[in-house]
Design a protein around this nucleic acid. Structure first.
Lengths: 119, 119
DNA sequence: TAAACATATGAACAAATGCTCATATGTTTA
DNA sequence: TAAACATATGAGCATTTGTTCATATGTTTA
Protein backbone atom coordinates (compact mmCIF):
# COMPACT_ATOMS: atom_id res chain seq x y z
CA UNK A 1 0.00 0.00 0.00
CA UNK A 2 1.45 3.31 -1.07
CA UNK A 3 2.32 5.83 1.57
CA UNK A 4 -0.48 8.17 0.64
CA UNK A 5 -3.24 5.57 0.57
CA UNK A 6 -4.77 6.46 3.90
CA UNK A 7 -8.50 6.32 4.48
CA UNK A 8 -10.30 8.29 1.83
CA UNK A 9 -13.05 7.68 -0.67
CA UNK A 10 -12.15 4.88 -3.05
CA UNK A 11 -11.20 7.13 -5.93
CA UNK A 12 -7.91 8.25 -4.53
CA UNK A 13 -5.89 5.03 -4.54
CA UNK A 14 -7.01 4.37 -8.08
CA UNK A 15 -5.07 7.50 -9.00
CA UNK A 16 -1.85 6.97 -7.17
CA UNK A 17 0.02 8.93 -9.78
CA UNK A 18 -2.19 11.97 -9.24
CA UNK A 19 -0.45 13.07 -6.08
CA UNK A 20 2.92 12.86 -7.80
CA UNK A 21 1.67 14.81 -10.78
CA UNK A 22 0.17 17.46 -8.52
CA UNK A 23 3.34 17.75 -6.52
CA UNK A 24 5.40 18.08 -9.67
CA UNK A 25 3.45 21.02 -11.02
CA UNK A 26 2.52 22.68 -7.74
CA UNK A 27 4.68 25.77 -7.18
CA UNK A 28 6.72 25.70 -4.01
CA UNK A 29 5.41 27.16 -0.79
CA UNK A 30 7.09 30.52 -1.28
CA UNK A 31 5.66 31.04 -4.74
CA UNK A 32 2.18 30.03 -3.58
CA UNK A 33 2.45 32.56 -0.79
CA UNK A 34 3.64 35.30 -3.14
CA UNK A 35 0.89 34.50 -5.64
CA UNK A 36 -1.77 34.75 -2.95
CA UNK A 37 -0.25 38.01 -1.70
CA UNK A 38 -0.31 39.42 -5.21
CA UNK A 39 -3.97 38.62 -5.77
CA UNK A 40 -4.85 39.95 -2.33
CA UNK A 41 -3.67 43.31 -3.59
CA UNK A 42 -6.23 43.15 -6.41
CA UNK A 43 -8.85 42.05 -3.92
CA UNK A 44 -9.89 45.46 -2.68
CA UNK A 45 -12.06 47.91 -4.56
CA UNK A 46 -10.13 50.96 -3.40
CA UNK A 47 -6.92 49.59 -4.87
CA UNK A 48 -8.73 48.56 -8.05
CA UNK A 49 -10.08 52.09 -8.38
CA UNK A 50 -6.57 53.47 -7.93
CA UNK A 51 -5.36 51.22 -10.73
CA UNK A 52 -8.17 52.36 -13.01
CA UNK A 53 -7.12 55.97 -12.47
CA UNK A 54 -3.55 55.04 -13.30
CA UNK A 55 -4.80 53.41 -16.50
CA UNK A 56 -5.53 56.95 -17.67
CA UNK A 57 -2.54 58.91 -16.46
CA UNK A 58 0.36 59.31 -14.09
CA UNK A 59 -1.01 61.21 -11.11
CA UNK A 60 0.12 62.42 -7.71
CA UNK A 61 -1.24 61.23 -4.38
CA UNK A 62 -3.32 64.32 -3.85
CA UNK A 63 -5.00 63.94 -7.23
CA UNK A 64 -5.77 60.33 -6.51
CA UNK A 65 -7.30 61.20 -3.16
CA UNK A 66 -9.44 63.83 -4.79
CA UNK A 67 -10.43 61.72 -7.79
CA UNK A 68 -11.54 58.88 -5.54
CA UNK A 69 -12.92 61.11 -2.80
CA UNK A 70 -10.84 59.53 -0.08
CA UNK A 71 -8.35 60.82 2.47
CA UNK A 72 -4.71 61.30 1.53
CA UNK A 73 -3.71 58.88 4.27
CA UNK A 74 -5.94 56.06 3.07
CA UNK A 75 -4.66 56.45 -0.48
CA UNK A 76 -1.06 56.63 0.66
CA UNK A 77 -1.37 53.43 2.67
CA UNK A 78 -2.82 51.61 -0.33
CA UNK A 79 -0.19 52.99 -2.68
CA UNK A 80 2.45 51.57 -0.39
CA UNK A 81 0.92 48.11 -0.77
CA UNK A 82 0.60 48.49 -4.53
CA UNK A 83 4.22 49.57 -4.74
CA UNK A 84 5.50 46.78 -2.50
CA UNK A 85 3.90 44.33 -4.91
CA UNK A 86 5.32 46.18 -7.90
CA UNK A 87 1.99 47.04 -9.43
CA UNK A 88 2.85 50.74 -9.44
CA UNK A 89 6.01 52.80 -9.43
CA UNK A 90 6.61 56.31 -8.17
CA UNK A 91 8.67 59.33 -9.01
CA UNK A 92 9.15 62.46 -6.93
CA UNK A 93 8.84 65.87 -8.54
CA UNK A 94 9.26 68.63 -6.03
CA UNK A 95 6.75 68.27 -3.25
CA UNK A 96 4.61 65.80 -5.17
CA UNK A 97 5.09 62.10 -5.79
CA UNK A 98 3.70 60.78 -9.03
CA UNK A 99 2.48 57.23 -9.37
CA UNK A 100 2.04 55.17 -12.51
CA UNK A 101 1.51 51.55 -13.52
CA UNK A 102 4.60 49.38 -13.11
CA UNK A 103 3.96 46.97 -15.97
CA UNK A 104 1.48 45.46 -18.35
CA UNK A 105 0.46 42.49 -16.23
CA UNK A 106 -1.76 44.79 -14.22
CA UNK A 107 -3.91 45.56 -17.24
CA UNK A 108 -4.00 41.95 -18.36
CA UNK A 109 -4.98 40.58 -14.99
CA UNK A 110 -7.75 43.11 -14.51
CA UNK A 111 -8.95 42.60 -18.07
CA UNK A 112 -9.18 38.84 -17.49
CA UNK A 113 -11.03 39.45 -14.26
CA UNK A 114 -13.54 41.66 -16.03
CA UNK A 115 -14.03 39.08 -18.74
CA UNK A 116 -14.67 36.45 -16.13
CA UNK A 117 -17.36 38.31 -14.23
CA UNK A 118 -19.12 39.29 -17.44
CA UNK A 119 -20.36 35.89 -18.48
CA UNK B 1 -13.52 77.53 -11.39
CA UNK B 2 -14.60 74.03 -12.19
CA UNK B 3 -16.58 72.11 -9.64
CA UNK B 4 -13.78 69.70 -8.86
CA UNK B 5 -11.07 72.32 -8.37
CA UNK B 6 -11.03 72.21 -4.59
CA UNK B 7 -7.82 72.56 -2.62
CA UNK B 8 -5.21 70.14 -3.87
CA UNK B 9 -1.70 70.32 -5.19
CA UNK B 10 -1.50 72.53 -8.25
CA UNK B 11 -1.38 69.69 -10.72
CA UNK B 12 -5.00 68.77 -10.49
CA UNK B 13 -6.72 71.85 -11.92
CA UNK B 14 -4.31 71.78 -14.83
CA UNK B 15 -5.89 68.47 -15.78
CA UNK B 16 -9.56 69.28 -15.45
CA UNK B 17 -10.39 66.72 -18.08
CA UNK B 18 -8.72 63.94 -16.13
CA UNK B 19 -11.60 63.45 -13.72
CA UNK B 20 -14.04 63.19 -16.60
CA UNK B 21 -11.86 60.72 -18.42
CA UNK B 22 -11.44 58.64 -15.27
CA UNK B 23 -15.15 58.66 -14.61
CA UNK B 24 -15.86 57.60 -18.17
CA UNK B 25 -13.68 54.51 -18.04
CA UNK B 26 -14.14 53.58 -14.39
CA UNK B 27 -16.49 50.60 -14.08
CA UNK B 28 -19.57 51.22 -12.01
CA UNK B 29 -19.63 50.51 -8.29
CA UNK B 30 -21.16 47.05 -8.70
CA UNK B 31 -18.54 45.89 -11.17
CA UNK B 32 -15.72 47.24 -9.01
CA UNK B 33 -17.15 45.33 -6.08
CA UNK B 34 -17.47 42.13 -8.09
CA UNK B 35 -13.95 42.50 -9.46
CA UNK B 36 -12.51 42.91 -5.98
CA UNK B 37 -14.54 39.92 -4.75
CA UNK B 38 -13.21 37.82 -7.60
CA UNK B 39 -9.57 38.63 -6.89
CA UNK B 40 -10.11 38.07 -3.18
CA UNK B 41 -10.87 34.48 -4.07
CA UNK B 42 -7.44 34.15 -5.66
CA UNK B 43 -5.90 35.86 -2.66
CA UNK B 44 -5.55 32.82 -0.43
CA UNK B 45 -2.93 30.14 -0.80
CA UNK B 46 -5.28 27.31 0.15
CA UNK B 47 -7.62 28.21 -2.68
CA UNK B 48 -4.71 28.64 -5.08
CA UNK B 49 -3.47 25.18 -4.15
CA UNK B 50 -6.94 23.78 -4.78
CA UNK B 51 -6.90 25.35 -8.23
CA UNK B 52 -3.49 23.89 -8.98
CA UNK B 53 -4.78 20.43 -8.15
CA UNK B 54 -7.75 21.01 -10.44
CA UNK B 55 -5.31 22.02 -13.19
CA UNK B 56 -4.32 18.35 -13.24
CA UNK B 57 -7.61 16.55 -12.87
CA UNK B 58 -11.22 16.50 -11.75
CA UNK B 59 -11.14 15.32 -8.15
CA UNK B 60 -13.52 14.78 -5.27
CA UNK B 61 -13.48 16.67 -2.00
CA UNK B 62 -11.87 13.86 -0.10
CA UNK B 63 -9.01 13.62 -2.59
CA UNK B 64 -8.45 17.36 -2.37
CA UNK B 65 -8.35 17.24 1.39
CA UNK B 66 -5.84 14.44 1.27
CA UNK B 67 -3.70 15.92 -1.49
CA UNK B 68 -3.45 19.22 0.38
CA UNK B 69 -3.29 17.64 3.83
CA UNK B 70 -6.19 19.64 5.17
CA UNK B 71 -9.51 18.79 6.79
CA UNK B 72 -12.51 17.96 4.66
CA UNK B 73 -14.40 20.83 6.26
CA UNK B 74 -11.81 23.46 5.45
CA UNK B 75 -11.65 22.31 1.84
CA UNK B 76 -15.41 22.20 1.54
CA UNK B 77 -15.77 25.75 2.81
CA UNK B 78 -13.22 26.99 0.29
CA UNK B 79 -14.80 25.03 -2.54
CA UNK B 80 -18.05 26.78 -1.78
CA UNK B 81 -16.37 30.15 -2.24
CA UNK B 82 -14.67 29.02 -5.44
CA UNK B 83 -17.97 27.77 -6.78
CA UNK B 84 -19.89 30.91 -5.82
CA UNK B 85 -17.40 32.87 -7.89
CA UNK B 86 -17.68 30.39 -10.76
CA UNK B 87 -14.04 29.38 -10.70
CA UNK B 88 -14.96 25.73 -10.26
CA UNK B 89 -17.96 23.58 -11.02
CA UNK B 90 -19.12 20.37 -9.38
CA UNK B 91 -20.81 17.13 -10.30
CA UNK B 92 -22.16 14.48 -7.98
CA UNK B 93 -21.36 10.82 -8.61
CA UNK B 94 -22.79 8.61 -5.92
CA UNK B 95 -21.53 9.65 -2.54
CA UNK B 96 -18.74 11.76 -3.98
CA UNK B 97 -18.82 15.24 -5.47
CA UNK B 98 -16.26 15.94 -8.15
CA UNK B 99 -14.88 19.40 -8.72
CA UNK B 100 -13.22 20.81 -11.81
CA UNK B 101 -12.22 24.17 -13.26
CA UNK B 102 -15.14 26.22 -14.52
CA UNK B 103 -13.39 28.04 -17.36
CA UNK B 104 -10.13 29.13 -18.88
CA UNK B 105 -9.87 32.51 -17.19
CA UNK B 106 -8.67 30.77 -14.07
CA UNK B 107 -5.56 29.47 -15.82
CA UNK B 108 -4.93 32.79 -17.55
CA UNK B 109 -5.24 34.86 -14.41
CA UNK B 110 -2.95 32.61 -12.42
CA UNK B 111 -0.47 32.42 -15.28
CA UNK B 112 -0.33 36.21 -15.46
CA UNK B 113 0.14 36.38 -11.71
CA UNK B 114 3.05 33.94 -11.90
CA UNK B 115 4.63 35.92 -14.70
CA UNK B 116 4.33 39.07 -12.64
CA UNK B 117 6.03 37.76 -9.52
CA UNK B 118 8.84 36.20 -11.55
CA UNK B 119 10.52 39.35 -12.77
C1' DT C 1 -34.33 0.67 7.27
C1' DA C 2 -30.15 1.30 9.90
C1' DA C 3 -25.38 2.03 9.52
C1' DA C 4 -21.56 3.82 7.02
C1' DC C 5 -19.66 7.01 3.99
C1' DA C 6 -18.99 11.67 1.57
C1' DT C 7 -19.97 16.31 1.68
C1' DA C 8 -22.04 20.75 3.41
C1' DT C 9 -22.80 24.16 6.82
C1' DG C 10 -23.41 27.13 11.07
C1' DA C 11 -21.10 29.02 15.12
C1' DA C 12 -17.04 30.54 17.27
C1' DC C 13 -12.50 32.32 17.58
C1' DA C 14 -7.93 34.03 16.29
C1' DA C 15 -5.60 36.50 12.73
C1' DA C 16 -5.52 39.74 9.02
C1' DT C 17 -7.21 43.95 6.86
C1' DG C 18 -8.71 48.93 5.71
C1' DC C 19 -9.66 53.11 7.46
C1' DT C 20 -8.96 57.17 10.72
C1' DC C 21 -6.28 60.13 13.51
C1' DA C 22 -2.16 62.10 14.87
C1' DT C 23 2.19 63.05 13.58
C1' DA C 24 6.67 62.37 11.18
C1' DT C 25 9.42 63.13 6.97
C1' DG C 26 10.69 65.52 2.85
C1' DT C 27 10.49 69.63 -0.22
C1' DT C 28 9.75 74.36 -1.45
C1' DT C 29 9.07 79.17 -0.59
C1' DA C 30 8.67 83.56 1.92
C1' DT D 1 15.31 79.43 8.76
C1' DA D 2 10.37 79.19 9.67
C1' DA D 3 6.11 78.25 7.62
C1' DA D 4 3.46 75.89 4.24
C1' DC D 5 2.69 72.09 1.40
C1' DA D 6 2.74 67.04 -0.09
C1' DT D 7 3.39 62.55 1.33
C1' DA D 8 4.44 58.64 4.57
C1' DT D 9 3.66 56.03 8.63
C1' DG D 10 2.48 54.05 13.31
C1' DA D 11 -1.27 52.96 16.51
C1' DG D 12 -5.94 51.91 17.28
C1' DC D 13 -10.41 50.09 16.06
C1' DA D 14 -14.11 47.84 13.61
C1' DT D 15 -14.79 44.51 10.06
C1' DT D 16 -13.55 40.59 7.41
C1' DT D 17 -11.58 36.09 6.85
C1' DG D 18 -9.84 31.08 7.37
C1' DT D 19 -9.91 27.40 10.20
C1' DT D 20 -11.91 24.12 13.65
C1' DC D 21 -15.57 21.67 15.82
C1' DA D 22 -19.96 19.81 15.92
C1' DT D 23 -23.54 18.41 13.30
C1' DA D 24 -26.75 18.33 9.29
C1' DT D 25 -27.71 16.59 4.59
C1' DG D 26 -27.40 13.35 0.92
C1' DT D 27 -26.15 8.70 -0.95
C1' DT D 28 -25.15 3.84 -0.84
C1' DT D 29 -25.02 -0.67 1.15
C1' DA D 30 -25.76 -4.44 4.40
Amino acid sequence: MAINDVECCETFHTHEHLLNQVNENMPDEDELYDLAELFKVFGDSTRIRILFVLFEAEVCVCDLAQALNMTQSAISHQLKLLKQNKLVKSRREGKSVFYSLADGHVRTIIAQGREHIEE
